[in-house]
Amino acid sequence: RYTFRTRGPEQMKRVVEWARRQNLSYRVEVHGDEYIIHAE
């Protein structure tokens, strides 16, 4: 189980790509310009 905090969509997309390659399920929360990605 991982939690990532990123700023801006570019970093968020990179984390999502990584999670997909690992076959993890993930969800993204948006708080202003901060993205929180939960993957497991």
Score class of each variant (00 low, 15 high):
W18A: 01
V28L: 05
H38F: 15
R27F: 12
L24Y: 10
G32M: 06
H31N: 12
E10P: 15
T3F: 11
Y35D: 00
M12K: 03
A39G: 02
H38R: 09
V16A: 03
Y2G: 02
R14S: 07
V30E: 10
D33F: 07
I36G: 01
R7K: 13
E17A: 10
Y26F: 12
R5F: 11
Y26L: 09
V28F: 03
R5G: 02
G32W: 04
Q22G: 06
D33Y: 05
R7C: 07
R27M: 09
V15I: 14
T3M: 10
E34Y: 14
Q11T: 09
R20H: 08
R14N: 06
M12R: 03
K13W: 13
E29T: 09
R27N: 07
S25D: 09
T6N: 01
E40P: 04
A39P: 01
Y35S: 03
W18F: 03
R14V: 11
R7Y: 10
E10N: 07
A19D: 00
S25Y: 12
R5K: 10
R20V: 13
R21W: 06
Y26R: 00
L24W: 09
S25K: 13
T6I: 14
H38K: 06
R7N: 10
V28T: 03
R27D: 05
Y2N: 03
G8T: 14
E17Q: 08
E29G: 02
N23R: 09
E34R: 05
V15E: 00
R27S: 13
R14L: 13
W18V: 01
E34T: 12
K13D: 05
E29C: 13
F4K: 02
G32I: 04
R7G: 04
I37H: 00
R5D: 02
F4V: 05
H38M: 11
D33E: 09
P9D: 12
H31M: 12
Y26A: 04
V16Q: 02
M12T: 06
Y26G: 00
R14Q: 10
Q11L: 09
E34F: 14
I37D: 00
R7E: 06
L24D: 00
Q11V: 11
M12E: 00
R1L: 08
E17S: 06
Q22D: 02
R14P: 01
Y35G: 01
A39C: 15
F4M: 03
V30H: 06
A19I: 14
I37Q: 01
H31D: 13
R21Y: 07
I37V: 07
V16L: 10
P9T: 13
P9I: 15
E34H: 09
Y26T: 08
L24H: 03
R27K: 10
N23P: 01
I36A: 02
R20S: 07
R5P: 02
E40I: 11
R27Q: 10
V30L: 10
L24M: 13
H31T: 08
G32D: 08
G8Q: 14
E17C: 09
R27L: 08
R21S: 14
R14M: 11
E34I: 14
I36E: 03
E34M: 13
E10D: 11
A39Y: 10
R14F: 08
R20P: 00
H38Y: 15
Y2L: 10
R14G: 04
E40T: 11
Q22W: 13
R20K: 14
S25N: 12
Y35W: 09
Q11P: 05
V15G: 00
V30S: 06
V28Y: 03
D33Q: 06
H31I: 14
R20G: 04
H31Q: 13
H31Y: 12
N23M: 08
Y26H: 03
Y2W: 13
L24V: 04
V30Y: 09
E34V: 14
I37W: 02
R7A: 08
M12H: 02
D33A: 07
A39M: 15
R1P: 11
R5V: 14
T3P: 02
D33I: 05
G8V: 15
F4D: 01
G32L: 05
I37M: 03
E17L: 07
I37Y: 01
A19S: 02
H31L: 12
R21A: 14
Q11Y: 06
E34P: 00
V16G: 00
G8L: 15
Q22R: 11
Q22M: 15
L24K: 03
R21G: 10
Y35M: 05
T6V: 15
L24F: 09
I36L: 07
A39N: 01
F4E: 02
L24A: 03
A39E: 01
A19V: 13
S25H: 14
E10K: 10
R21F: 06
R14Y: 07
V30N: 06
Q11A: 14
G8K: 14
D33K: 08
G8D: 15
T6R: 03
H31S: 13
Y35V: 05
T3V: 13
Y2Q: 04
H38L: 11
R14A: 12
R7H: 10
Q11H: 10
E29N: 04
R21H: 09
I37F: 05
N23C: 14
A19P: 00
K13P: 00
F4P: 02
T6S: 04
T3D: 03
V28A: 01
I36T: 05
Q11E: 13
H38A: 03
E34D: 08
A39V: 15
K13R: 12
N23D: 06
E40H: 11
R20D: 06
V28D: 00
R14T: 07
E29I: 11
V16Y: 02
A19Y: 04
I36D: 01
E10F: 05
I36K: 02
L24Q: 01
R5T: 09
I37P: 00
N23E: 07
Q11K: 07
R7D: 07
D33S: 10
V16N: 01
V16M: 06
F4Q: 00
R1Q: 10
V15M: 05
Y2P: 03
G8C: 15
N23L: 06
E29Q: 07
Q11M: 12
T6E: 03
V30R: 13
R14W: 08
E17W: 06
G32Q: 04
N23V: 03
I36H: 04
R27I: 13
K13Q: 13
G32E: 07
R5Q: 05
Y2V: 07
D33T: 09
S25W: 13
A39D: 00
E17M: 07
Q22T: 06
A19Q: 00
H38T: 14
G32R: 04
L24T: 01
R21E: 11
N23I: 02
Y35Q: 02
P9H: 13
V28I: 12
V15R: 02
S25A: 11
P9L: 15
A39R: 01
P9R: 14
Q22N: 15
R21P: 00
E40G: 13
R7L: 09
R1E: 09
M12Y: 07
R7W: 08
E17I: 05
R20T: 11
S25L: 11
Q11F: 07
G8S: 15
Y26W: 12
D33C: 13
W18C: 11
D33H: 07
R14H: 05
K13C: 14
D33R: 06
V15N: 00
W18H: 02
R27E: 09
E29R: 04
S25Q: 12
V30G: 04
R5Y: 14
K13L: 14
S25V: 13
D33V: 07
F4N: 00
V16E: 04
T6P: 04
E34S: 07
R20I: 15
K13T: 08
E29W: 07
V16K: 03
R5W: 09
E17R: 07
V30Q: 13
Y35C: 09
F4T: 02
N23F: 08
N23T: 03
G8E: 15
G8I: 15
S25I: 13
M12V: 08
P9E: 15
H38D: 03
R1D: 07
L24R: 03
Y35H: 03
A39W: 13
F4Y: 05
K13A: 13
I36Q: 02
E34Q: 09
G32F: 05
R20M: 12
Y26Q: 00
N23Q: 08
T3G: 02
K13M: 14
E34A: 07
R14K: 11
